[in-house]
Design a protein around this nucleic acid. Sequence first.
DNA 1: TAGATTGTTAATCGATTAACAATC
DNA 2: TAGATTGTTAATCGATTAACAATC
Lengths: 220, 220
Amino acid sequence: MSEPAEAREARSVPPATIARLPGYLRALGTLVARGVVTASSGVLAGLAGVRPEQLRKDLSLMGAHGRRGVGYDVQALRAELEATLGLTRERRVVIVGVGNLGRALARYSGFPDRGFVVVGLVDADPAVVGTRTAGLVVEPLEELAGVVRRLEATIAVIATPAEAAQDVCDRLVEAGVSGILSFAPRPLRVPVGVDLRSVDLGSELQILAFHDHRRSSAGR
Amino acid sequence: MSEPAEAREARSVPPATIARLPGYLRALGTLVARGVVTASSGVLAGLAGVRPEQLRKDLSLMGAHGRRGVGYDVQALRAELEATLGLTRERRVVIVGVGNLGRALARYSGFPDRGFVVVGLVDADPAVVGTRTAGLVVEPLEELAGVVRRLEATIAVIATPAEAAQDVCDRLVEAGVSGILSFAPRPLRVPVGVDLRSVDLGSELQILAFHDHRRSSAGR
DNA sequence: TAGATTGTTAATCGATTAACAATC
DNA sequence: TAGATTGTTAATCGATTAACAATC
């Protein structure tokens, strides 16, 4: 226990753990709203939809500390996790592709209270460029790099058709964003150092279809 | 090899494998469009964004067969995977929650050509009920079970606010859907036999923020 | 036959769960 | 002190990668 917290934190937190932190943060938010001061791993895990052992393991990997026999201080833990996730600073987001999905994301009310601000919208279609959505004027694709740099966006969302996605992705990387959330149904390549997460709505449904199929064809 | 294909398939395909099948299917679609007849695991894996070994392992778990020294028959493999995923039959989808996101999903053009048809829209807000989106009239929440049964929907999408999600989820299960795709930022509980997949846009961004934070605070 | 490529087994890696001593 | 609950180590499980014999 003589090891500094910095060292422990730097030594690679497992991706699976990181992916669960937002859930813990949400659970903590619920408890704070309820005025709860202290919560056990059991209570917290219940709210987050995981097992208590896993929550304790995750938090201990993060260097967070509860008190044996008591539980976790809700406020302190929340502050700690927010600091870890870097949510103390506002993150600036650019959305590329202002179709149905892009527009919905631009208007999505869940982002602001989680520390994200959509600062720019970009689209390739001249008919869309210049229109307003969520208080922002859509800029042309040629301006992408300029928009990212001027608005100091560090995170981008790709909501373009599949064909355009890799090109947009390359430009975003070139412009210096550090993370990209893609909704394009196509695998994208990014250099190391840039973080890419993908959500493919069609694939999600296909996976559900697989189970549906198994279920409806079972026992015949 | 005396074991029937049925038995092998029934003996639990790993979830991680199932989650990759839609990607393989997309890669195969690309090759078919290009008129390619045969492809090696290397080519297919490249298009799907995975390693060749993994693709071969996945396909062999599914009981699919290529030809040594040759590769996989593109058309045949596609047909096989579509049958496995149950995409030969059209899947009927109901969307609950017709806000920005629900509307965008209702209009999403990527679904139809993947075998999914949005057949119903449901919302709790009287101001939204009765309006039209994507050619469908929005029905009231009270009609949820009726809508699901009448339209024979087997898959549902939850795009409601977090507070309403568990109640909607329970009703959907009660009405008999076999799979649910939730966008509500809250863990949901479903009974065994019902498949639940969740996409939390806020969490995705928070995970990106974590990396951004690490990157910008590194080496200081 | 020679070259290519699969299918599958074995080795590795990472993530989850179980167990329990430490300690509030 | 007695009861509760953490933090952490060990055991298990599942998924990925490597290796290579089978075979087209």
